[in-house]
Write a protein that binds this DNA or RNA. Sequence first.
DNA 1: TATGAATGAGGTTTCATTCAT
DNA 2: GATGAATGAAACCTCATTCAT
Lengths: 218, 218, 218, 218
Amino acid sequence: MTTETTPRLRADARRNRDRIITAAQAVFTERGTEVPMEEVARTAGVGVGTLYRRFPDRDSLIRAVAHDAFDTVLQDTRATIEQEPDAWRALSQIMHRGMALRTVVRLTVLSTRARSIINSDPNTEAVNNEFLLLVDGLVRRAQADGALRDDISTGDIAVLSSLALQGVQSLPEELRNLAPARYIAVLLDGLRAQNSRPLPGRPITAQEVVVRTPERED
Amino acid sequence: MTTETTPRLRADARRNRDRIITAAQAVFTERGTEVPMEEVARTAGVGVGTLYRRFPDRDSLIRAVAHDAFDTVLQDTRATIEQEPDAWRALSQIMHRGMALRTVVRLTVLSTRARSIINSDPNTEAVNNEFLLLVDGLVRRAQADGALRDDISTGDIAVLSSLALQGVQSLPEELRNLAPARYIAVLLDGLRAQNSRPLPGRPITAQEVVVRTPERED
Amino acid sequence: MTTETTPRLRADARRNRDRIITAAQAVFTERGTEVPMEEVARTAGVGVGTLYRRFPDRDSLIRAVAHDAFDTVLQDTRATIEQEPDAWRALSQIMHRGMALRTVVRLTVLSTRARSIINSDPNTEAVNNEFLLLVDGLVRRAQADGALRDDISTGDIAVLSSLALQGVQSLPEELRNLAPARYIAVLLDGLRAQNSRPLPGRPITAQEVVVRTPERED
Amino acid sequence: MTTETTPRLRADARRNRDRIITAAQAVFTERGTEVPMEEVARTAGVGVGTLYRRFPDRDSLIRAVAHDAFDTVLQDTRATIEQEPDAWRALSQIMHRGMALRTVVRLTVLSTRARSIINSDPNTEAVNNEFLLLVDGLVRRAQADGALRDDISTGDIAVLSSLALQGVQSLPEELRNLAPARYIAVLLDGLRAQNSRPLPGRPITAQEVVVRTPERED
DNA sequence: TATGAATGAGGTTTCATTCAT
DNA sequence: GATGAATGAAACCTCATTCAT
């Protein structure tokens, strides 16, 4: 759980807040963002009342969960870049670090609602943009190095990774954690410069993956 | 719309049935399997009553939509195999023919509920199994031809294609149809025999992607 | 089925009408007057359309069933009186002739709705009144004969018989037909002049059991 | 309202629960077990939500009402037996104490649904069985005393009393409360040993009036 | 005329959110 | 501050009735 822009909270209140976000993250990832609020509360081990005191409505909870997840990913990405000077390898690692992203993916790829909530939250958007900026740097460097194919851009990579990481509930338990790693690996093979059968369409940039469409529920 | 096991319906009833399935397919794909039934009915241009007369509950509607979609995919696959003797190319085409699969993907990848409904419908399962069998044949042939990497199996390909085809709502309209084609292409590049950085884990077979987990709601 | 005030009907229409009344009688007796109209139609072996062509709404069906039943009872009563000169014995027989009354009882004792429908049907009311008049004659004669206790009147007897005849669904099949006969017999024993522990309250007359309260649903 | 097997409820919740049962009892007795839940809620002065929180569906409400009513009857019966050493007189009193039984009667005699619900509730069945056991004791004693006719058994008496107590909605207000007392009295006269014209059929025992028929709606 | 399909009003049930304890 | 009870709006589903075939 990362430091938030929330005032100062009493220790126990703080603890409750964290338990709720953790629970919401798990429940949202598992069963979607439409689960009954009672269920989130139960999972967090608090009463609904407490949940609502902390997050006045579902949207604000989704927002908090998203912000927290994006933030974690951002930290992670920063650390990786710092430690790995090779752009391609840094990119690979980031794409593989899956789990931290799972929640974001469920939130952004699967739920129209979550998407529009997130997109209208300047707080989260800032974090997200900074993350995309970092990846964008890696992408350009990797392409300059001749490691990454040229007909691709940051947006493509963001979408592809999220898809691969999304995971597939329908696989047997044993494979559920295995699969994402395999698919990221296949993708990486497909992304290498030397494999290039030219791609159809045109590169999707970082800017293009952030939308603000205020669409309906998912 | 494919011929169903339904008794015989009066012409108008038949027409309505088809309109409902078409509408449900669109709406489910667009907004998930939990949309209000009223909305499905409205989209189909019929009253709720009619919807319920034809499909006594949501599950039975999902089942019908799934069966129909699987069936379409199966026809498609058969036709492709017949016309394209080269296994790799046939596989590529099948993976690209996207749209027909979109609904199935939304249903199976995204909705726990749909999954468990489909898995308990022998009718649909049969169709699905036949489809996987055909793909399995192609996969083996393509591997024997040295076109497809060896450390992959039919299950992987099924999952990967569905992920890539799933499409991403958050992209701007213009890109929404473009993206899947690009990602399938990247994947195919990643799947070629010559690119093989060995993959982690082990191949996921056709059998493994069919589950019967009777899980909770999505 | 008795002759009705309905115009002249084609033979097959007539037949349908009768089948519907018979079916409705059975179904109403078995499951109450609120059964789905479809079920009445199905039992009668006709489509709902036909049912509605004959009886434009549920009320009119209830009315027809009630009239038919009352009428049957009336015929029966007349015949009994003609053949049995002894008032007490005639009364006993009438009270025992149960089955014909079953439907009326379900309709009048159990369903507020049926009651108010029947009570606002002059046609049926006439038949009912005539029946009560006949019974009233027997009651007075039996009392004059010293066979029937004095502190009782026709209304009491009507109510008591209907209660006893009502039958009890919850009894095992074998007893279901047995029970009414027993209870009528107990009642008759209780009604004999010689047993008289004086009754509380006052006699309930024939007039009092016909109400026109337009009450709510049952 | 009697003490229930419910965990422990907050004072206000407890109060609401009781109000709901009381209201349901009244409304069920008055208009049958199929009244809109909204109406039960309105009568109890709570929102539907509250009703559903306490009783997740109609069945569970019916069950609670039935249990409560049976329990009241049981208490009553125990008290009567304790205070009245003469079996016949105790039996008479029990049969007369009507009102407490009214609800049970409506529930068991009139509604197929209620019957099957009650019969599948071990909780209620236990209470009911204990009640029948007590009555059975009285019946045997009264017969040994030569006060009660011999060709009758507990089941008959249970059924007869419920019928007589059932009351008749169609009577004018003034008579509605009067009638049951009269009919119980007639019955008692019919049940006395000295009046015995032998009854048709055979005695219906206590065991026979408890059924488990899982029948359809009423 | 008979049929069974279509409609929509109304009852049922769930759950987000508010509020008393 | 935390809890869980109460509320009511909104979704679900059934069925009386109408109407095309």
